[in-house]
Amino acid sequence: MQRYSLSHLKQLEAEAIHILREVVAEFENPVMLYSIGKDSSVMVHLARKAFHPGPLPFKLLHIDTTYKFHEMISFRDRFCEENGFELLVHTNQDAVREGISPFVHGSNVYTNAMKTVGLKQALRAGKYDAAFGGARRDEEKSRAKERVYSFRDGHMQWDPKNQRPELWDVYNGRINRDRKESIRVFPISNWTELDVWLYIHLEKIEIVPLYLAGMRPCVERHGTLIYVNDDRFPLEEGEEPEMRMVRFRTLGCYPLTGAVESSASTLPEIIQEMLLTTTSERQGRVIDFDQDGSMEQKKRDGYF
């Protein structure tokens, strides 16, 4: 029976394709959240596989917080242009008008306004009944229990006590559209960080070069290395960015994303470094440090 066996990556790929097709078949207006990160790259790649030889049957939606690394924005625009993907970019203009900034208002207020509220605005405006996200269960403790189909009420809120049981690969996609119910869908729920990297390596998937080591101007704040990506970064008295050989394990808003010192400049070297390191992926994100269980609170509020 050896010839009828699939490697774990091929099984995970098949599972994700199954989920993508199921949603497209059962929902009227799906959209794929596109964060430009490596998980998004994998998601788009899987979507192309799922609907080949047809085009992507949905648009990509990027919630632009205005503080993304400029390398991410240029990658996004070129990637979508070259592949003919329909890209929607949304920014919470209310927050921009109010001048909400991570430097002035702190990471919580800023993230809530730009990410959570911005996302809700975009989903509401587009009247999407399903939104794909690239979250994985191995990322964070509360996500270990997240469903593949995450049911959201008319206020897009997630109720941890009222999620539908999921059996086999049979997903319940019934929603009440009059009540503006929707779902968030996580096709790569069962992938780990290592799976994602292995898959990128195996499938030669394009990723933002920030994942690879390079000389970048950085300052160190509270033990975290911040890449000074533009002149909005308020340097403190006597602070001077210095060129450091760094890379990023996760990508987000540049003031909130810590760099790691590294010389890993190829994919195998990244994976090698990841395997030998002893800190987990999300630690680079300032957002999780607030308090125990904070991601769960954000999810209840409608954060992806």
Binding site: D138, A144, K145, P160, K161, S189
Partner: peptide, 23 residues
């Protein structure tokens, strides 16, 4: 390590299915 949601943690029991990965 395998515990997850805050409400469950406060009750001292897990009340759902949690998925864990290793290889």
């Amino acid at each position: 390590v395998t515990d997850g949601l805050r409400a469950e943690r406060e009750q001292g029991i897990t009340i759902d299915v949690a998925y864990r990965f290793f290889s």
